[in-house]
Design a protein around this nucleic acid. Structure first.
Length: 200
DNA sequence: CCCTGATTCGC
DNA sequence: GCGAATCAGG
């Protein structure tokens, strides 16, 4: 694969958007993240634009004697500030891109006090007692990751009340392709049959 | 351990 | 110019 205009375009765009080198590499295909980083440097856009939240000091010894045009960044790509008021009730949606500021289920209404956090938001959470129990078990051994620690292969199931500090993400290894670990996948993606005629 | 970008250097 | 290997972190 060579760096065609188009590919460089994509590289510039994604890098400007704050995508990681590995993500860009994945998107482009045929190159590794190293290739991407190498290219980024050669293009002279090692530093991302806007008041990047992930602003890196970049201790690299840049050429001090060179009027860098700094044309890199595009005008409308400000630091992705996250809004606290995100209409994001279902946990299934918190599974976003790792680097992009995944909208954490912001505090909504002071629902459950403390006792049973009851994570599954799905309106009709008719999970079998057994499943629920196993999930509870898993949550005991959860890695309790913070938003920043989530990756593509860590379970993104939120646990606890986002309005309090008693909140974290499962963090266990995800099931191939899914955003959640096996236990949480089972409660997140229920076959319709399971919710059919619940006995209530 | 997973990941990030930075740098080096043979090609 | 390119990018694997390596380095230096989080």
């Amino acid at each position: 694969m060579s760096w065609t205009e188009e590919r460089v375009e994509t590289l510039k765009r994604m890098w400007g958007e704050g995508q990681s080198a590995s993500q860009i590499a994945k998107e482009l295909g045929g190159v590794t993240r190293n290739a991407v980083i190498g290219k980024v440097h050669r293009l002279g856009l090692s530093n991302r634009a806007g008041g990047g939240a992930t602003a890196k000091p970049a201790p690299a010894k840049e050429k001090p004697a060179k009027p860098e045009p700094a044309v890199a960044a595009k005008p409308e790509a400000p630091a992705p500030d996250r809004k606290p008021a995100e209409p994001r009730p279902t946990p299934a949606n918190t599974a976003a891109q790792p680097s992009a500021p995944a909208p954490v289920p912001a505090a909504r209404k002071p629902i459950v006090p403390a006792g049973q956090p009851l994570p599954p938001q799905p309106s009709a959470n008719e999970i079998s007692p057994e499943t629920l129990a196993s999930v509870r078990e898993v949550e005991k051994t959860a890695k309790k990751l913070t938003l920043m620690e989530l990756t593509e292969r860590t379970c993104k199931w939120p646990i606890g009340d986002p309005a309090t500090d008693d909140f974290w993400f499962c963090g266990l290894p995800v099931q191939q392709g899914k955003p959640y670990c096996e236990a949480h996948v089972s409660v997140a993606f229920q076959p319709m049959s399971a919710r059919r005629d619940r006995k209530r």
